[in-house]
Amino acid sequence: MKTRREVLQSLIVSIGGASVLNACGGIARVVPSSSMRFYSDQELALVSRISDLIIPRTDTPGALDVKVPGFLDSLMTEWANPETKNNHHEELKELTRMLGEGFATLPPDTSEQRLAQFDYEAFNGRPISYSGYRSLKSLITQAYFASEDGALQEQKWVAVPGRWDPCVEIQ
């Protein structure tokens, strides 16, 4: 089992190795990164924190292990048009406002509780005001399952099934 610090280190590797890891009192912060092409430092910290909370490492790798934030930074840089880019920035701004300015640096238990409550509201309350969160959650999940570990270990993706079995008992 990797430590939180090691997880964050792997995150940094994922974003080009130019970042400096600064951890204090269990609170991790990623400080200036010249290799991020889309996210600001604040945005990266938020996206990283949310990614880790939504898909943590368990007995399989988590979102940070498979470098989801770096993946999304590339996606926004290479795939998104100016309107989508702007929307994504705006959504993160709104998320920061709704979750609270210091969300990314809250102690883990606190941030987990906060996001769990927020997620509950997003799926049970007024979904429209939470569309930015739901959109980010969707991207994080898609990016995770598009990774080698996410696809093979978590989703049990098989390249060439070789046969079709229409009814399998789940053990």
Partner: peptide
């Protein structure tokens, strides 16, 4: 990701 929950439960 269009289902509720976070963390191990969601995963």
């Amino acid at each position: 990701g269009q289902i509720p929950g976070i963390g191990q439960v969601f995963k």
